[in-house]
Amino acid sequence: MGVIVYKCINCGGPLAFKADTQNWTCDYCLSEFHEQEVRSFINNEQAEAEKNTEIAHELEQEFQENAVGYSCESCGAEIVTDDTTAATFCYYCHNPTIIPRRLEGEYRPEKVIPFQINRERATELFINWCKKKPLLSKQFTATSELEKLSGIYVPFWLFHCSPFGEISGDATKVRSYTRGDTRYTETKYYRVLREGKAIFRDVPADGSRKMDDELMSVLEPYHYKDLTDFSMSYLSGYLAEKYDMDQNDVYPRVSEIMRKNMSTLLRETINGYSSVSVKRTDVKLKNVEATYVLLPVWMFTYQFKGNTYIFAMNGQTGKIAGKLPISKGRASAWFGAVSAASFAALMIGGQFIW
């Protein structure tokens, strides 16, 4: 049975019941409380303790469910991963670790594009990209920072479908001509209608909640001719994630992209008019299929003045995307140099503009 200790509401010291006053008194701050105050305080303390215990239990349960430990076969260190990590490496000896059962059954990818850019080349491309950014902090490309560059196989869904679409609207043809001393403008009005079919293949959508959808989309396109049958061997030495968003989760995002693209294709067939105003669009997506694949991405996360910046590189083509932190010192120096150069050019030309 637990021991109950009555504590002072004001200072936290022990309370003692005084028989003469029938109240509780603190010998440290000399505060005095009647029975109802003490009971109310105790009830609040117990409720808070129970709440904290419940939260701690939930966090422990979540950790037990999602965090899994593995022993490194090389050095014996404990490797802890979450429930979506399929491949990682030991942070002590860098021995690659693949977790096969994370990619079994429905989580086994059909295809993979292997990394075609190694770490050394990725670092070189990243540094060259940064050199073209004059306002970037020099610390950004420090060796210690670039060690955080990680190769990750990101889960993607590639959608294929055969859309059928219709668009209709109004169009005009305007012609101007002159007869004698009079200038005429002739406007003809038309009702336009277009319909057609198309085939869309390999429309991508990342299947990881951890990844920034916009960042992943900027890395496109991948060359899907390099897709090969999935093998665990491709994961060795890299990180890998399994999807936590299935094809139904990402379909609304992809279907919107395919509908817009189909509408654009139909709109581009309306030519020869002075103006076109589309009034109605109807696109139906048919024979929709999805293929689960892993695509290579080099990721780099950078902390700068309390903000987190995430950068990504297409591990096949080397295309880079991300928002850069601006160094105020370098920005001031750069703008100062630009201003000085502009001033010199204007003086040579005999002009000075404020």
Rank of each mutant, 00 (worst) to 15 (best):
S176K: 08
N307Y: 10
T172Q: 03
Q116K: 09
S74L: 02
Y224M: 11
Y234D: 06
G151D: 02
R179P: 00
C93T: 09
G315F: 13
F335W: 11
R119M: 04
H94E: 13
T291M: 03
T269F: 10
V80M: 13
H94W: 15
D27Q: 15
E214A: 08
W24H: 02
H94D: 10
Q139G: 15
R183M: 05
I310K: 15
C161G: 06
F63L: 04
Y91N: 14
F33R: 05
T281S: 11
L295Y: 00
E256A: 13
E166C: 07
A87N: 09
S137I: 13
W354D: 11
L146V: 09
I99T: 00
F159A: 01
W298G: 01
E78I: 12
W334R: 13
V276Q: 09
L219T: 07
R201S: 06
I79F: 01
S274H: 10
G318V: 11
P134D: 08
V276S: 02
R253A: 15
D249Q: 08
I353F: 03
Y28V: 15
A205Q: 05
D170Y: 02
G237Y: 04
F156Y: 07
D282G: 06
H34M: 12
D202Y: 03
G151S: 00
V203S: 08
Q139A: 03
E166R: 09
E58D: 12
A337M: 06
V288A: 03
P134W: 02
D244I: 13
F343H: 01
R280D: 07
D181C: 03
S217T: 01
K286E: 13
I199Q: 06
A312T: 12
N44R: 06
F17L: 10
K131H: 02
A171P: 00
M216N: 00
S263Q: 07
E32F: 05
D282P: 13
Q303K: 09
S168V: 06
A344W: 06
K51C: 05
L15V: 02
N118C: 05
Q61V: 10
R194P: 00
E289G: 14
V80W: 03
E62Y: 02
I320W: 15
I167Y: 02
G105Y: 02
A86E: 01
E48V: 07
V276F: 01
M1W: 05
W334P: 03
E50H: 10
Y189I: 05
T264W: 09
N314E: 07
T25M: 14
